[in-house]
């Protein structure tokens, strides 16, 4: 492997109430153009960013949630959701968008991008990163 670095983006804010979620997504998409190893973690209120069925037509804010489904096309396919954060909010994986990517090495087989992990597993993942950016 060349000089690609492992980037982890931590998302901890709900969408719309603040600009963090949208800013993070923009940075992720920009970063993805530089062929780095990117992964995303959604913890605390950040898990709300991936809720299905968002419709902002009555609040006058751009609905950026469909953009998450484009991440797979940018080779951003390691998306970790903290189990404890989902459970604390009464949510399950079914409440979130189904994000997938196509594996070039396996005849473009469609694979899930989202992995639900425990806090302990996430802590280990953080520990292997070169750069961690928090939003």
């Amino acid at each position: 492997m060349s000089d690609a670095k492992k980037f982890m983006y931590i998302n901890r804010k709900a969408p719309y109430g603040t600009i963090y979620a949208w800013e993070s997504l923009e940075v992720v998409l920009i970063g993805a153009a530089f062929d780095q190893e990117v992964s995303l973690a959604f913890v605390d209120d950040g898990v709300y960013q991936l809720m299905k069925g968002q419709d902002t037509s009555e609040v006058g804010i751009k609905n950026f949630s469909p953009t998450y489904s484009a991440l797979g096309d940018y080779d951003v396919n390691k998306i970790y959701i903290e189990k404890e954060s989902l459970e604390a909010r009464g949510l399950t994986l079914d409440d979130l968008q189904h994000l997938v990517w196509e594996d070039e090495d396996e005849d473009w087989a469609e694979k899930d991008s989202i992995r639900v992990v425990t806090s302990a597993e996430l802590a280990e993942l953080f520990d292997t990163q070169d750069i961690v950016l928090s939003f």
Binding site: P15, G53, Q54, T56, E58, V59
Partner: peptide, 14 residues
């Protein structure tokens, strides 16, 4: 506020 729950993908049923 209904428009805010709709924006966030939350269901009135819940």
């Amino acid at each position: 506020l209904g428009p805010d729950i709709k924006a966030r993908g939350l269901s009135e049923d819940r």
